[in-house]
Amino acid sequence: MTTIQQTFSDLKRRNQKAIIPFLTADFPNRDTFLRLLYELPNSGASIIEIGIPFSEPMADGIVIQQSSHIAIQNGFSFPRLLADITAFRRHNTVTPIVLMTYINPLIHYGMDACLQDAAKSGVQGMLIVDLPPEHTNRCIQKWHGLDSIHMITPTTNDRRLAIIQEGSGGFLYYVSVTGVTGTQSANATSILPHIQRIRTHVSLPIVVGFGITGVSIAKQMADLSDGVVVGSHILKPFLTASTADYGTIVNEQLMFIDEVRHHLDTV
């Protein structure tokens, strides 16, 4: 059983849903990012998704575009992120980390070295937004123990579900809206039939992301699935804040995740 599978099985035993915050690495700066990484698990985060910033974030809305841009300006480097994760692992051995990225920075680093180094530093899963399962074998020979996380969208048909299921590990990431991250709210009524259809094809846990803009929508989505990903909503306040306010915002965002945890755990 992989660490991610263990996490979902523990959650299930406790009758809980997964909360997966998304952080852009080194945003708004490295210290603040690391503080969130270290403290989110105490507020009820089950898994942390870390976005590797890319200069051309084609599937992302304005918040993650800007956060990526700032992270690159802050001098983001992949080896340094892995060193930071290695240090984090000395402090926390249970909360899985999933890296989410576009393929180009990984190719440039060297795909195999990248997966191997990520696994060594304590990463459990990898989600490559623009690598469809059809091309995975061409780009990746060995996962080095990492789970390959894939997205399923409202446009995914049954034929593609089968292809995706075959190449997937850990969990499936259901994209609740056709669109980019952080731009519109998900709608539980329209999503339910999709999730039900997916359930008949796949056995992996399903988490819902994109458009999780508040506590009540998180609750609705978690009720339909095995958990939620919260990204833009956590990052957005930092974009307009001054450096002096980052500490306060971190506290607010930790309280927000705390509140989501409380609502999700309340039947």
């Binding site: 084609m58 623009d130 469809p132 061409r138 969208t153 995914t156 593609r160 994209v175 056709t178």
Partner: peptide
């Protein structure tokens, strides 16, 4: 070449 796009676009 190839088709390096996100899942939303693959069916289309």
């Amino acid at each position: 070449g190839g088709q390096y796009v996100s899942e939303t676009l693959m069916p289309l």
